Simulated scan of single mutants.
Amino acid sequence: MKKYDFKIPNILCVNARKIYVDGVYHWMFSIDFAEEIEALTGVKNLSESEPRFLRTLRELMKKLNDGQKKLALLFFTTIAETLITPTMGKFPKDERLVLPVRELINDHSIDELRHLRYFVELFHFIWEQIDFDDRHILCLLLPRMLYSYFEPDFDRIIQLLKLLGFSDEEIKRVLSDTYPKDRIVENVMASSTATIKLFKDVGMFDDYKIKSAFHEEGFLV
């Protein structure tokens, strides 16, 4: 990203490496836990597919130049790291989940709280160092990025429902009853308090077009 030589404190660089290690650890223990469940229950793990939000990101990035694409990845990661903590925080207390699952999520969420604080601090440091045009282009994509984290992967859901023997008509009814857009947006708003606050704090919504883009996606900002 030659256009941007971000000036950030060295401690943020050090902590970024620590977060990378956390991320690898989370990935490894999640795989190990899934394999343990498969071995214990005898239920085979269904084939994995690329998450919908990554497909959405790739589509959004098509019209960006190389520098903007790298910034888009940073913005997208900031959304992910500020969304996941409030989303995960409620599960360790949900006694409908078996204890090992709650303990695993609780361990993960403790780390994610540190990650949230880190990315809030990092975003503040880089915000003023991004030029207006790039900032404007990227911010107009943020509401779609934000929504994509909660948007159901309908292709994957349809595939799974077909495997379970549901007819096309039954699948349509399941999707319409389970995933109305207003409920999805309501879920996003409930889970994105820290993300929206960060955007407000840097003055993002002072730009009418950016604020309108969020409203068009259904977000009250």
Rank of each mutant, 00 (worst) to 15 (best):
Y4C: 06
I8F: 04
I8D: 02
I8R: 02
P9E: 13
C13H: 11
C13L: 08
V14M: 07
V14A: 06
N15I: 10
R17F: 08
K18P: 02
D22L: 05
G23D: 07
G23A: 05
W27M: 08
M28R: 12
F29K: 12
F29I: 13
S30Y: 11
S30V: 08
A34E: 12
I37S: 10
I37K: 12
E38P: 02
T41L: 09
T41H: 14
T41N: 14
K44V: 08
E48A: 15
E50W: 14
P51T: 08
P51D: 04
F53H: 15
R55L: 13
R55D: 06
T56L: 04
R58N: 15
L60D: 02
K62G: 03
K63L: 07
D66L: 07
D66Q: 05
Q68T: 06
L71Y: 01
L74D: 02
T78M: 06
A80F: 15
E81P: 00
T82I: 09
T82H: 04
L83N: 00
I84V: 15
T87C: 08
G89T: 11
P92F: 02
K93I: 07
D94M: 14
D94F: 10
D94E: 12
R96C: 05
R96H: 07
L97Q: 04
V98K: 10
V101C: 09
R102C: 03
E103P: 06
E103S: 13
L104N: 14
I105P: 01
N106R: 11
D107G: 14
D107W: 06
H108P: 01
H115K: 15
R117Y: 11
Y118F: 15
V120L: 08
V120F: 03
F125D: 11
F125K: 12
I126R: 01
E128C: 09
F132I: 13
D133A: 10
L138N: 01
L138A: 00
L141W: 00
L142P: 01
R144N: 10
Y147V: 03
Y147E: 02
F150D: 00
F150Y: 12
F150L: 07
D153A: 04
I157D: 04
I158H: 01
I158P: 01
Q159D: 05
L160A: 10
F166N: 03
D168M: 13
E170C: 07
V174Y: 05
L175T: 02
L175W: 01
Y179C: 11
Y179L: 06
N187W: 10
V188A: 02
M189G: 05
A190M: 09
S191A: 11
T193M: 05
A194H: 14
T195D: 04
K197M: 11
F199P: 00
K200C: 12
K200E: 03
V202S: 09
D207V: 07
K211Q: 15
A213L: 02
E217C: 12
